[in-house]
Design a protein around this nucleic acid. Sequence first.
DNA 1: ACGAGGATGCTCT
DNA 2: GAGCATCCTCGTG
Length: 196
Amino acid sequence: MARDLIGRYLVREHEEGLLVGKIVETEAYTQDDPAFHGWRLVDRATGTIRPKGRGYDLFAAPGTAYVYFNYGMYWLLNVVTEPEGVGGAVLIRGVEPIEGIDVMRARRPNVRRLSDLTNGPGKLAMAFDIDGSFHGTNLTLPPLYFTEGSPRERLPVATSPRIGITRGVDLHWRFYVEGNPFVSPGKPARLDLKLR
DNA sequence: ACGAGGATGCTCT
DNA sequence: GAGCATCCTCGTG
């Protein structure tokens, strides 16, 4: 799903105008992955899910929004991807603005370079006015949803370890459009630098 | 271009 | 009290 979402459009029907971005960077998380927020909720012995704590909503129906408040300041948009009862999600990390750039600029007045508008998960959430009120919503319906993106292009998709994590660094579950300026500038996690 | 450090609040140990 | 799926500013080169 993380690879499949590359090139599709993220659409936000905002009161100030329609906002559209082409997805150029994603990351995958699964319930068998130590970086997954719901990792501790899985009882490995019985295979059941403990219905408590952060990350329980990652086991909801596919297409549900999981919006995470990170570092006390930033909202991050995920889409739940697995059948209900199975944990898994895709984090949207970068989008290329297609429509509504003026509204996005107005929401981020200190941004100088265009690429800084939406080249990161926190940045795109700010530009698209996405916050915790979207947590649990259906991402196939307005006012926040994905579309196929027309026309689907043949894009050069590369992979790498994920960014900003310290566990599961050996998994190359980040997908991005090579050379696209709206791919986030963060560096993929590296075992030899983290010493863990 | 790149690295260090601060902001800021929630979850888990 | 530490760690965190980040961003921004300011320093150095």
